[in-house]
């Protein structure tokens, strides 16, 4: 029964969500609105689970003084500080909470995001090698797009941005659409398997 109930619940809600998309029956519409409310409620509880999981993990590592437990302490201190500032000093403009957010979190996270530029450069250096005919095609297309998407391309030759747009809109788009169709069909088949209970590993009760 422990295994069957989640499958039945999954099936009923799966069919319900599918049916309500096509049928405008008031009962289904109302049920649908309730489902939307519940999704939000459940999400908030999931956040609580996350916070608890975070606390337990780091407290455990600190109490056992595991390798580099100082980092766990920093993580917990960060959490405690933000909760304290948020609850007791508010989150309005010019509050300490927002100061920390603007002056610590934003620059730190932007730094992580900016790593992308560095990694793109090193990946391009390593990846774009003219090993055979296909890789030459890839290399030429890549260089045209890299140049064509910035003003520099236009300065070098007016045909470069045009070629870049053509590559993006024709061959690249065709390939992406093909992959998207595959992904879409894969998603549908997986959803159907989940709805009827064929695929149940995600329940942890394979």
């Amino acid at each position: 029964m422990r295994r069957q109930i989640p499958i039945v619940v999954c099936f009923v809600f799966g069919i319900f969500m599918l049916a309500q998309f096509f049928v405008s029956h008031p009962l289904l519409t109302r049920g649908y609105q309730n489902v939307l409310d519940w999704m939000q409620i459940i999400f908030v509880f999931a956040l609580l689970v996350g916070a608890l999981s975070f606390l337990i993990l780091h407290l455990d590592k600190i109490s056992k003084q595991q390798k580099e437990w100082g980092y766990n302490l920093v993580a917990l201190a960060g959490l405690a500080a933000m909760v304290f500032l948020g609850f007791f000093k508010g989150i309005q403009k010019d509050s300490p909470f927002l100061w920390v957010f603007d002056n610590l979190q934003v620059p730190m996270q932007s730094t992580m995001f900016s790593l992308l530029a560095f990694f793109v450069a090193s990946a391009a250096y390593r990846g774009f090698r003219a090993r055979n005919f296909q890789s030459v095609v890839l290399l030429v297309a890549g260089v045209l797009i890299i140049l064509g998407r910035v003003p520099l391309g236009e300065m070098l030759h007016s045909k470069i941005p045009e070629s870049a747009t053509w590559i993006l809109n024709v061959p690249s788009m065709a390939a992406r659409r093909g992959i998207l169709i595959g992904i879409g069909l894969g998603s549908i088949a997986t959803s159907l398997r989940i709805i009827v209970g064929i695929e149940r590993t995600y329940l942890g009760k394979g």
Binding site: A117, V120, A121, A124, Y125, F128, L139, G142, V143, I146, L147, R149, V150, L152
Partner: peptide, 9 residues
């Protein structure tokens, strides 16, 4: 940055 990537390639 794009120019540098092309040069690196």
């Amino acid at each position: 940055a794009h120019l540098l990537i092309v040069l690196l390639v």
